[in-house]
């Protein structure tokens, strides 16, 4: 069994509406090994959720369409599978946790029914066995009195408990890959920490790989091994967590890091922001998509799209100025931007 679980090559996703085509994902590539976690970060509309839902072929078609690339899961290209084969993979080999636990559960069925549903969809078990398994799953995700809770409805659960239920549903068939689409965004901070802790614990137990979609870099540092930074449907930086954390290379990644609250931020100090807004994906982008907002942009950035370059081992960047000869210094920029904001 090879160690490589998932390999995405040049994934392209488009949305058509009338005559306009929105290129939501533009050539995303990455690999994920077994028991490894990857974080996909980027601001809203950068294509991270579309990338994740495309892996399960869940984007609404039409208007969405996976227009190119390969998704190799254990060597099989998911894009060539029939609908039936795809259904067998969903929930069984790859499952997903969604952003809003308040709306992720069907209000008219009990929590137990919904956990048992996913079990019964993929395993030939009796109702009694499914129920046993559901109780066991609830116990595993830390819900007290699972026998009682099984018959309760989603509205009787708090947000954190519902997300625990969602995790129980997602893990009930022991998937090899778990896609978590901002699983902690809708929860408050203390519950976030509990959910992350739970995911880490269960990952060890189930030997699952996780794709974590988030805009909270703190979450990434916490549980991921690799990071994929996306901007306007493109991957702009990709590498191990250590590399990206210690030596980020792309000006956009700098911006993301600078806009975080850290201990070094003093009281009443303004957080650094990235000026401008992401480009309109309906238009053809010439050059680097980040160029209009980048304080380092030169003429070449507007005319030629930068290619992914391996600047170091396992660290890829798409920026014209991050080759050895032209490397920029992040510190300079940070102080420069802070000075601008203060004045």
């Amino acid at each position: 069994m090879s160690n490589e679980l998932l390999k995405v090559e040049n994934l392209e996703v488009q949305f058509k509406s009338g005559s306009t085509v929105t290129k939501a994902v533009n050539g995303v590539s990455f690999t994920l090994n077994r028991k490894e976690n990857i974080g996909i970060v980027g601001e809203s509309g950068s294509g991270k959720s579309v990338t994740a839902t495309s892996l399960l072929r869940l984007i609404p078609t039409p208007p969405g369409n996976i227009s190119g690339g390969k998704i190799l899961f254990e060597g099989k290209d998911l894009l060539t599978l029939s609908d039936k084969e795809m259904r067998d993979i969903r929930g069984n080999d790859i499952s997903m946790i969604f952003q809003d636990p308040l709306t992720s559960l069907n209000p008219v069925f009990s929590v137990g029914d919904q956990i048992m549903e996913s079990i019964k969809l993929h395993q030939k078990v009796s109702k009694k066995e499914a129920k046993q398994k559901a109780i066991q799953m609830l116990q595993l995700v830390g819900i007290p009195a699972p026998e009682k809770r099984l018959n309760m409805y989603p509205h009787e659960f708090s947000g954190g408990m519902r997300q625990r239920v969602m995790i129980a549903i997602a893990l009930s068939c022991n998937p090899k890959l778990l896609i978590a689409d901002e699983p902690t965004t809708a929860l408050d901070v203390t519950v976030q920490a509990q959910i992350l802790e739970l995911m880490k614990k269960l990952q060890d137990e189930f030997n699952t790989s996780i794709i974590m979609i988030t805009h909270d870099l703190g979450v990434v540092w916490e549980i991921c091994h690799k990071v994929l930074v996306m901007y306007a449907g493109n991957v702009i930086e990709y590498g191990t967590v250590e590399e990206i954390h210690d030596q980020p290379m792309h000006p956009y990644t700098w911006g993301l890091l600078d806009s975080q609250i850290t201990e070094s931020v003093e009281d009443h100090e303004m957080l650094t922001t990235i000026p401008g807004s992401p480009p309109d994906l309906r238009q053809e982008i010439k050059g680097c998509p980040f160029a209009p907002r980048c304080s380092y942009a030169r003429d070449i950035c507007f005319s030629k799209a930068p290619e992914m370059v391996e600047v170091k081992e396992k660290h890829f960047v798409a920026c014209h100025f991050q080759t050895k000869e032209t490397r920029l210094n992040r510190k300079e920029r940070s102080t420069h931007v802070r000075a601008v904001v203060k004045s």
Binding site: D88, R90, G91, S104, L105, E117, L121
Partner: peptide
């Protein structure tokens, strides 16, 4: 609704999603 997408992500058939 998100729970419909969740059900899809679990590998349910159209008929099950519709009637259930």
């Amino acid at each position: 609704s998100e729970y419909i997408e969740v059900t899809r992500s679990l590998g349910a058939k159209h008929s099950r999603i519709i009637f259930h």
